[in-house]
Amino acid sequence: MSDMLEMRQVVGGYGEADILQGVSLRAGQAEIVAIVGPNGAGKSTAMKAIFGLLNVRGGTIVVDGRDITGLEPNRIVEAGVCYVPQVDNVFREMTVHENLEMGAFLRSGDLSAAYERVYGLFPDLKERRRALAGNLSGGQRQMVAMGRALMLEPKLLLLDEPTAGLSPRYMEQIFQICRDVRDTDVTILLVEQHAKQALAFADRGYVLASGANRHEGTGAELLADREVAAMFLGG
């Protein structure tokens, strides 16, 4: 089976300096892949590289057999990749429903099935569909952000710290939604600061440090790795 995402030896950064010094990631069809690592490791930067928000100076990024290296973000959306940034990931002055509608901006035709699917995944949002996204709680806002990205029915979903600042209850809920989404044949790549929980829940994981791959393996393998444990998992 071919990979949904294959990122090979990607080098690049925001300006002149290279933040990513050769990062390689892959994710299969309908797989949840977690990226963990210390703050400033380049996890968010790696996601931005996939989404065309970085000056990529080396390596290639292939999504579903198509080379998307260096394409503009709106072309990458068209290629079936959606991205939920770590911060500022909703339109605050637009309603929940309008946020979802913006997620489907590139789609034409009947969207009712897409709304139904997203509201089915996030029943909380259905109740609050006319509320401004900026007035929601952090957890609900994260759901709006994910819902917006899912409206396009992406093949690959990039989530940057979807559980940051959320209570354990919301965290479990978000993880469960990720599983549900994966089960509809969507590949999920997510960055997590809650390394232990994320590795326990993901199919596979990568540990990044200083803009490069450090470890990779299944979640269980990484959790069992002494070095990884010493690095992030609190001993």
Binding site: P73, V77, E78, V90
Partner: peptide, 11 residues
């Protein structure tokens, strides 16, 4: 509202 997110949404 959020120019970066608009771009990410394909606008």
């Amino acid at each position: 509202d959020n120019p970066d997110l608009a771009l990410l949404s394909g606008v």
